[in-house]
Structures are given as structure tokens and as C-alpha cells.
Simulated scan of single mutants.
Amino acid sequence: MKKIEFVLTSKHNNRRFVADARWIANHTKKPTVILVHGFKGFKDWGAFNVIADQFANNGYCCVKLNFSSDGTTVDYPFEVTDHEAFGNNNFSKELDDLGVLIDWLHSEECPIGTIDLSKLYLLGHSRGGGVVLLKTAEDERIKKVATLASIPQVNTFSEETVEHWKKEGVIHVVNGRTNEELPLYYQAVEDYYAHEERLSMMKVLPTVTQPILHIHGDQDETVPIKAMDFLHQLNPASICKTIEGASHTFNTKHPWTEDTLSENMQTAIDYVLDHFSE
């Protein structure tokens, strides 16, 4: 299996971010899957590398990325350590970083000569599910999209939380892996309302014409399964799959030291492979 890692530059503050790709080195043209991580995650979180290997072994080129402001850095891409960057992250930045990656795949700089960019697919987990849905709506180069335990919308905070957030300028969330408090600056709310036509799932998702697959566990402790029902209502052509007994991470965790996936995650990836191959 061929693997490369590369560094790209965000359109926002010229911050650099790391991505990687893997594929089986032969002369066969390969569909491309971009795997997008969720909130407080990163490209090598949990079982993501096992998932990427499965895509490669099934004839795909699989690409993963860290976002420029997700709290990782080029020098330390395996954990959220840059708290200021994390606090200043927003959906616009993540959509634009994903666009930078897609542009790079289509450029002469990309050294992967056997990828078939007429078959470019996105797969996102949790917050990453929201990102890939929004990106699919604005980029016709994306031909199919799938989500794992996707958030239902971007603006999920209560009025009370937003009022407090605006007054204080910041709220904090706990990183469950490190028990650190991570800041979220109010700029994320301002960005949403400044770009609501781009970021509102209710406005955007009904416009998506590419095939959509949603997968959710009925034991999701973070994003309730009713989120999938909401997304399906916004785009009734989408396909929905429920996995019984599956948690938010489909019973995987970080770190993931196994060479195989959990039973529930394997079921989810099998659904995705079927969706992309149809």
C-alpha cells in the first residue's frame, strides 16, 4: 500500500494543515474518498486509519485531513494542543480547508496519478458529517456523500447559551481524552449568521442532488438518532441506515489498537462501500 502525507495552506490566516492519502499502487483508476473527522477529533483519531486501509484495499484512494484550526498543528497532528486555534475555528474555515484539499487533488501538484476524480466521494463523522453535507451542496465535483452519526445542523446552541456566550465572549468544552477545558470563542456564532445561506442545513440540504447515505446508531449518546430523521426530512431522497446497539463512535474509541473494526463500525463501513460502489 502506498501512503503519502502532505501539508496544505488554509485561505484563513495562511495556517498550514496536514493531510494524508493511501492507495494500492497499480495502474487501476481509483475512486477517491475523503474522510472528515468530527469535533475535538483529528485525521488519525480512533479507527480512522483502519477505515482508510479498508477503502484502499477495496480499490479506493482514501484521503484524510486535519483542519487548519481544529487545534492540531503540523508538528503535532495527533491531538488538540493549539487551544487558541481551536477556539477560533468555525464551519466556514473547515469548508474552505476541505475546498483547498479538493483543489489540490485536481491540481498538477497532486502526485497520485491513478485517481479517478470523476468519482469523488465524501464521508464525515459527527460534526464532519455536517461539513461534508454542506460541502457537497456547494461543490459539484463531489458525486456522493455519506455520514456517520452526523449532527443535524450547525446552530445547535440554545438562546440562553448564545446570550451567555456573547456576553462573555467565550464558552468552554471539556476534551474527554485529556480533561482539558477548550475555549470556543463567540466568533463561531458571528460566522454562522454572516454566512447563514451557506451554513444553514435547512436552507442547504434540500438543494443537494448527489446521492446521500446517513448511518446512525440507536444508542448514540452524543447525537440522538432523531438527528438522522431530521436530515432525511430535509432531503427525502437520502438513504438512512440504523445500526442497533451502536454508540456515537460505533463502538470504537481512541486510541484504537486493533487491526480490525468493531462489529458496528464494520457494518457502517460496509454500508458506505455499497453506497459508493452503486
Rank of each mutant, 00 (worst) to 15 (best):
S118D: 06
K166N: 06
D139R: 11
I171T: 06
G130S: 07
I171C: 05
E163V: 06
A194S: 15
D191H: 13
K143D: 04
S158I: 07
E197I: 07
E159V: 07
K119G: 02
L122K: 04
Y185P: 07
K166R: 15
K167C: 05
A146L: 07
Y185V: 12
L148E: 05
T114W: 00
L134Y: 01
Q153L: 12
A146D: 00
T156P: 00
H125P: 00
N175M: 06
V189K: 14
Y186W: 14
G130Y: 03
D116R: 04
D139S: 06
N175F: 09
E140L: 09
E180P: 05
D116Y: 03
N179E: 11
T147L: 10
A188G: 10
D116Q: 00
E159Y: 10
S158D: 10
G130K: 04
E196W: 13
E140K: 13
K166H: 08
Q187S: 15
S150F: 08
G124H: 04
L117S: 02
L122W: 03
Q153F: 14
E180G: 08
L133S: 04
Y192V: 05
A146E: 03
T156G: 08
T136V: 05
H195T: 05
G176Q: 12
A137T: 02
N179I: 06
L199W: 14
Y186G: 08
E190C: 08
K166I: 13
E180K: 15
G124N: 01
V162C: 09
K167H: 12
G176T: 14
V189F: 15
R177D: 10
K135N: 05
V132K: 02
R127C: 01
A149G: 11
V132T: 03
K167W: 07
T147D: 00
E168F: 12
L120K: 05
V132N: 02
T147Y: 10
Y121C: 00
Y186K: 10
H164S: 12
G129V: 03
Q153A: 13
V174N: 13
K119I: 00
G124T: 00
H164G: 10
N175I: 11
H125S: 03
V132F: 02
L117F: 01
S158T: 14
L184F: 10
V145L: 03
G128S: 02
V132C: 00
T136H: 05
S158C: 03
R127S: 03
D139K: 04
G128E: 01
R198E: 12
G128I: 02
Y185S: 12
A194D: 14
A149R: 04
A146G: 02
D116K: 02
I112W: 00
K143V: 10
V174Q: 14
V170F: 08
N179Y: 15
E180N: 11
G128L: 03
T178M: 08
D191P: 07
K119R: 11
F157V: 10
V132Q: 01
T114C: 09
F157W: 14
H195C: 12
H195E: 06
G124K: 02
I151E: 08
V145K: 05
R198P: 11
L120G: 03
S200D: 14
V131E: 06
D116V: 01
G128Q: 02
E160A: 15
P183T: 10
L133T: 06
H195K: 14
H195W: 11
A149K: 07
I112P: 00
K167E: 12
